[in-house]
Amino acid sequence: MSTTTERTEGTRENRGGLRALYAGNAGSVLSRGLLAARSSTWVVVVSGFFEPVFFLLAMGYGLGTFVGDITLDTGQQISYPAYIAPALLAVSAMNGAVYDSTWNVFFKMHFGKLYQAMMSTSLGPLDVALGEISYALLRGVLYAAGFLTVMQVMGLNQSWTAVLTLPAVLLIAFGFASLGMAITSYMSTFQQMDWINIVMLPMFLFSATFYPLTVYPVPLQWLIQAMPLWHAVELVRNLTIGALDSGTALHVGYFVAMAGLGVILTTRRLRALFLD
């Protein structure tokens, strides 16, 4: 006769609190990523840097000759390349961060069994989540920093506040990497992974990247304003043209929330998958 008692659901959720989730050692996960990156193909990494540069040349300087200068809401007049460059910067931060946090995470999760191995050490799911997200955002930051230099050289930064683009890009990449990893952790097939691309391409084209949001009917504007890339584009554009307003704080808040949500979801999912 069994004398054991079924434990209540409540105790399962609260087991060990933060100590059971986090060993304070996310750094070891990050440095593992960097070490593994040494063996990856640098051509792929470098090509990611050139992508926004090509867009800037073709759209900004090529197509831009037909567009002329842009008059902003603030009355400020800027060249077309200076209008789209910050958007391309935000996009490259997004692409870089999403690349490592989606496909690479998917492979490590399902084929490499990397997280299973990590979780049998004293690492907790939060260590793994933070370490992997930090690694993923590095690529986004790297691309963005490179492109910011290009912008500076081409005279597209209109204000000293452009310096703040770097921390802003860090936040943006963190947001995309953490949400990307969270979403990926729920995916189990390649077909599902394709949905990420299906969402990202229109987001890239329509998030006030190449023309202002005002061309759309109002309901569509709301939809786009709910998307993360629009906030990223606006935040970076505010900083590079030096037009900070209350919206800037909102954009920052959006990404802080997105990053937090991503970390929480990823941690929960990793725990559910590997510490069942």
Binding site: T11, R12, R15, G16, A20, A23, S120, L123, L275
Partner: peptide, 12 residues
């Protein structure tokens, strides 16, 4: 193991 997972895993 429910409350001390990381500590236990550290010694296994």
């Amino acid at each position: 193991p429910d409350t001390h997972g990381p500590e236990i895993r550290a010694r296994l």
